[in-house]
Design a protein around this nucleic acid. Structure first.
Length: 231
DNA sequence: AACCAGGAATGTA
DNA sequence: TACATTCATGGT
């Protein structure tokens, strides 16, 4: 089946319905409530290919070490950052990424995140993407949850859900899927952030508990669900 | 005891 | 462009 979600000429009602259904099922997810913007960014980097549980431990490690600020982390050695974030895994590369990020903020914006976030949204996104260790998913997560920019985060859960709904083939480029959501949803940061969080929440249920779409593999009686819901 | 977790960079063909 | 490999800990 072709990816009708991706048409811009034909606004896709299904993506709005899906949000309503997910929200009605799981309620607000309350991602990244009030830890501070830098903590949100650090969390976004630390959680790459890692459970949020482990990323939180790493964040706590940074907090305990007093490294949860741009100035402190900029002054710290990579070794000390590594010690603090070990539970998150990939600690060597992530420590470099964190240090590279704060170095960028310090040199370009004199250590103030406000300078970065004051950029035009499109420029800001490109600038984030230019940083080492910040790919499309992390960039969009930072934009939505820290910068307040209305964009959409596409992750493995979103791809898997849309595939199982039969709305995409699965191999669509990141940008295509991002626009599929953006083009049919209100430019509301809260809604867009909630939507992504709901998709993750639903994905973690491993599609066992709640049928989201009639006839889709999420139905309790479908073959995929009976197999145990793995992969 | 393999498998997965709120990815991205690099290398190869 | 498309696919494989590397990074690495911790829970199930």
């Amino acid at each position: 089946m072709r990816a009708r979600v991706c048409s811009r000429d034909m606004p896709d009602e299904r993506l709005r319905d899906l949000y309503e259904r997910l929200y009605a099922t799981y309620g607000p997810q309350g991602w990244w409530p009030s830890d501070g913007r830098f903590a949100m960014i650090a969390g976004g980097i630390l959680t790459q290919r890692t459970s949020w549980r482990n990323a939180e431990q790493a964040l706590h490690g940074l907090e305990t070490a007093g490294l949860l600020s741009i100035e402190a982390m900029h002054a710290a050695t990579v070794e000390r950052i590594i010690e603090s974030i070990r539970p998150a895994g990939f600690y060597r590369s992530k420590a470099q990424v964190l240090k590279g990020f704060v170095a960028h903020i310090v040199t370009r914006y004199r250590g103030a995140l406000e300078g970065l976030f004051a950029q035009e949204p499109g420029v800001l996104r490109q600038e984030l993407l230019s940083l080492r260790g910040v790919g499309p998913e992390t960039a969009d997560a930072i934009l939505v949850y820290a910068a307040g920019v209305p964009t959409f985060v596409i992750d493995g859960y979103a791809r898997r859900l849309l595939s199982r709904l039969g709305w995409i083939d699965g191999g669509e480029p990141y940008e295509q899927l991002r626009h599929a959501f953006l083009d049919v949803l209100p430019k509301d940061v809260e809604l867009l952030g909630e939507y992504h969080a709901l998709i993750v929440r639903h994905g973690k249920e491993r599609c066992r508990a709640v049928p989201i779409c009639a006839g889709c593999p999420l139905e309790p009686d479908c073959a995929w669900a009976r197999q145990g819901g793995a992969r």
